[in-house]
């Protein structure tokens, strides 16, 4: 079992979400978060451009069994990109998932995902 954490641009969440559903990733957690990498995002405030310290991003968490990891990663890679890839498109982190427990039934492991 793996935990995929993707940090992407907010305007790409709709397309990524739809792409994940197409490859049968139906259980995801999405949250709004902030951070900064290399990108600078400019907003207008009364005509003055300014660069916020922390930039809004969207974080997607997907816990899945091994065979779903590659389809999920490919879907995110394909649809989170602006044009052929722009600074700020985000990152994907994959970590080993030790255990997964379904609260309703108490099931554990791969069937609980």
């Amino acid at each position: 079992m793996k935990l995929i954490t993707a940090i992407i641009q907010p305007d790409k969440i709709e397309e990524v979400h739809e792409a994940l559903i197409r490859v049968e990733i139906l259980r995801i957690t999405v949250s709004r978060c902030t951070g900064h990498g290399q990108a600078e995002q400019q907003d207008l405030y009364r005509g003055q451009k300014h660069t916020p310290n922390l930039i809004p991003k969207v974080r997607i968490d997907i816990a899945c069994n091994e065979e779903f990891v590659e389809p999920a990663v490919n879907a995110i890679l394909q649809y989170a990109k602006h044009d052929s890839g722009t600074i700020g498109d985000g990152k994907i982190f994959i970590t080993q998932l030790e255990q997964c427990i379904r609260i309703r039934t108490g099931e554990r492991g791969e069937t609980a995902i």
Binding site: I13, V30, S31, R32, T34, Q42, D43, P56, V58
Partner: peptide, 11 residues
């Protein structure tokens, strides 16, 4: 408009 209506509210 190059703006956001709210701050860090949920998506």
């Amino acid at each position: 408009h190059g703006e956001h209506g709210y701050g860090l509210l949920n998506l």
